[in-house]
Design a protein around this nucleic acid. Structure first.
Length: 205
DNA sequence: ATGCATGAGGC
DNA sequence: CCTCATGCATA
């Protein structure tokens, strides 16, 4: 299903990983913030951690992005042009996940101000009919993606249901039963745990 | 849009 | 080895 903005663009200009945003403890993630939200605050930045605000922003963001005729991949590479310290480009995947709220709450909060800044610049430029220089390049990489068959996937899900964090030995045993590489199984469990923490599927919101 | 993967940082 | 942010490859 290639969506209207399902552009596949390569972003070769890749900076090594940038800044580490917020070192935080896992326990601090499920923090709530039930305050009355006073209506006369001085000038708070975008440090609000309200899921409803994030949801609203993500939706507005997507709509305005589309109005501008910009793809998710375009936004990702354009971020580098903002020249924000510690902020480079992002992938189509990340922009997509931001819009669909399939990132961790913390990740959403960290990305919001950056994407908001981009949106404001993009709309300003659009008004002025300015064209931004595009950056194209050729790429030549071919990483392969393992594909776990449905039966094996169902087994993994069953194991996950009773033990989300199996020991190394248990993982090895599961890997052998399903005839998969141990590392493939280990990573599958890691990714599964991460999925549970996505904003959209987390019950703690 | 999403599955499997990588790498930094942490314990 | 884990978590977390992030991305290539692909459905």
């Amino acid at each position: 299903m290639a969506g209207p903005d399902g552009a596949v663009v390569s972003t070769p200009t890749h900076a090594p990983h940038m800044a580490t945003m917020n070192p935080m403890h896992q326990a601090a993630l499920s923090m709530a913030h039930a305050h009355g939200l006073p209506s006369h605050m001085g000038c708070m930045s975008d440090v609000d951690a309200d899921p409803r605000d994030l949801e609203a922003f993500a939706e507005r963001f997507k709509q305005r992005r589309i109005k501008l005729g910009v793809t998710q991949a375009d936004v990702g590479s354009a971020l580098a042009n903002l020249k924000i310290p510690g902020v480079g480009s992002l992938s189509q995947s990340t922009i997509c996940r931001f819009e669909s709220l399939t990132l961790s709450h913390n990740n959403m909060i960290a990305l919001k101000p950056i994407l908001q800044a981009w949106l404001e610049e993009a709309e300003k430029s659009h008004r002025e009919k300015l064209t931004k220089p595009e950056l194209f390049n050729g790429a030549e990489k071919k990483r392969k993606r393992t594909s776990i068959a449905a039966p094996e996937k169902r087994s993994l899900e069953a194991y996950f249901a009773i033990q989300p964090r199996p020991s190394s030995e248990k993982i090895a045993a599961i890997a052998e039963k399903l005839d998969l590489k141990k590392n493939v199984v280990r990573v599958w469990f890691c990714n599964q745990r991460q999925k549970q923490k996505r904003m959209k599927y987390s019950a703690g919101i």
